[in-house]
Nucleic acid binder design. Sequence first.
DNA 1: GACGGGTGCTTGAGCTTGTCAACCATTGCC
DNA 2: GGCAATGGTTGACAAGCTCAAGCACCCGTC
Lengths: 142, 142
Amino acid sequence: MAEAVKRRAPAQEAWELLGKLFGETRHRIVRVSAEFGLTPPQLFALRTLEPDEPVPMRALATALHCDSSNVTGLVDGLEAQGLVERHGAEHDRRVRMLVVTEHGAQVRSRLIEVMREVPPQLASLSAEDQRALRDILRRALG
Amino acid sequence: MAEAVKRRAPAQEAWELLGKLFGETRHRIVRVSAEFGLTPPQLFALRTLEPDEPVPMRALATALHCDSSNVTGLVDGLEAQGLVERHGAEHDRRVRMLVVTEHGAQVRSRLIEVMREVPPQLASLSAEDQRALRDILRRALG
DNA sequence: GACGGGTGCTTGAGCTTGTCAACCATTGCC
DNA sequence: GGCAATGGTTGACAAGCTCAAGCACCCGTC
């Protein structure tokens, strides 16, 4: 640690660089949502719902880390666009199962497709760097 | 490309892993903001302002990629807490220069400190991985 | 020097997210 | 049957965000 030189740990610099990527990604999410006529929270909600696995609203709320009352509004929006439907559950008449419609499933898969697109900064990396990055992230997050 | 095996490019898998990290970071930002008595947008605003470099509100708006009218509210909040002040500019009486107060500068630096903390997933990487990650990100985003 | 377009900021309307508290219907246990 | 707990909705409220309108001011031109 030289006197005037403020040494930053490599991980810290990496973290700051990721911060930049985060910022740009936020705007991307807003843009993509708008393309699909959704708001970002609606997009996350639809992405969370598996077309073949109806879940009660409560489950969506916990998955999104938010209040149930919030989900009511989100689902209202999705339902208004015919992307999901509320079906009554047989065994418990209190719960409403969320079912992704045919249309909703199509939108959802296109949406996931777009979200998966690797941002240009990463795509421009060499094949070796891409593999190394994947391996490191696997070790960190896997 | 084997038949049934859907091969994912390494960069794509890396991107998905980063998505996970993003999600966790979002909650972290909310938590940190609350700790400082700020809302997330207020936090970003304060972080953007350099204590030694007063800037017109317009500049903050473009830096935050939002409308000027939005900044008015954000700055109202920061000013109410004594973190920034609006000063008239000499050469142009329309513009209001944003000046970070002494207190604001302190809060800001503590805040940046906390935001810089490397999340545990990255911190737990080996020193080599950390360096490799930094180098790759430098190439991607530098 | 006065006019007029462009600019910086604020205000207000309107929408969405998000939380909390209150409420209703229903369930399941005692 | 009674009663606490649960799933979902509603309403009140705070905040972010955008747009349109307005105000004060700058600056070019005639």
